[in-house]
Amino acid sequence: MDTILIRVPDGMKNKIAMRARANNRSMSGEVLDILQREMGQARTERIRELEALCEELEQQLASLFAQQSITRDRLESAREELMRRKLVVSIDEPGAPSGDT
């Protein structure tokens, strides 16, 4: 285990000592518990933020796929309409092959 030496504001050492006694721990154990909980809480909050961001991105992606699908459907309909019109035009054109031989 690593060792660190820290300076604390006046009065904080006594607060840590009282809290350590109340929790049946050494002062080092109490400080370590505080640091672990704080760092774990910050990590948990960051994970929640990232999960929310992922959810938002998934919704945006689903929306983009839906828009792409609509656009693809419109394009296919337009292509089919164009092919139908070309067929109608080529059938109606004078001199166009009639299919009768």
Rank of each mutant, 00 (worst) to 15 (best):
L61I: 08
L35V: 12
E81C: 10
D33A: 11
E51L: 06
L57M: 08
R37F: 08
M27V: 02
S98T: 15
L57A: 09
E58Y: 05
R85A: 12
S26Q: 06
R7S: 04
S69V: 10
D100C: 05
L82G: 14
G95K: 06
V88F: 09
T3S: 07
A62H: 11
D100E: 13
S98K: 11
K13D: 03
V89G: 02
A78P: 04
D2G: 03
D33L: 06
R37I: 06
Q60E: 12
D2P: 05
L35Y: 04
A42Q: 07
R85Y: 14
P94S: 12
S28D: 14
R79V: 12
D33S: 11
M39I: 11
R48I: 01
L50A: 07
N14I: 06
R7G: 02
E30K: 02
G95H: 06
S26D: 07
D73A: 15
R37S: 10
R85D: 13
G29N: 05
D100P: 00
G99C: 11
G29H: 06
Q60P: 01
I16T: 03
P97N: 11
Q41L: 06
M1V: 04
T3Y: 05
E55W: 01
A66S: 15
L53I: 02
P9E: 09
R25S: 03
T101Q: 08
G40H: 09
E93C: 06
A62K: 12
Q60V: 06
Q60F: 04
G40T: 08
L32V: 07
I34F: 08
R72C: 14
D92W: 03
D73C: 10
Q41A: 09
L53P: 00
L61F: 09
D10W: 01
M12L: 13
I34N: 01
N24Y: 03
L87F: 12
R43P: 00
E49A: 06
Q67Y: 13
R48G: 03
Q67N: 15
A66F: 12
S63F: 11
T71V: 14
P9S: 08
T101K: 10
A66H: 15
E80T: 12
A96F: 12
V31M: 02
L87R: 15
R84L: 12
Q36H: 07
P94M: 05
I91T: 13
D92F: 05
D92G: 09
L87V: 04
A42D: 01
I34Q: 07
E58C: 06
Q60Y: 03
L64G: 09
A62N: 12
E30Q: 13
T3M: 08
I4D: 00
L53T: 04
Q41V: 02
G99W: 09
R43T: 09
R21S: 10
D92M: 14
C54P: 00
E80P: 01
I34R: 07
C54W: 00
S28F: 03
Q60S: 08
M27G: 00
T71I: 15
E58H: 08
A20G: 04
Q36Y: 07
L5K: 07
R25Y: 00
S28M: 03
I70E: 15
R74D: 15
N23V: 04
E45M: 10
K86G: 05
E30L: 01
G11M: 01
S90H: 12
S98N: 08
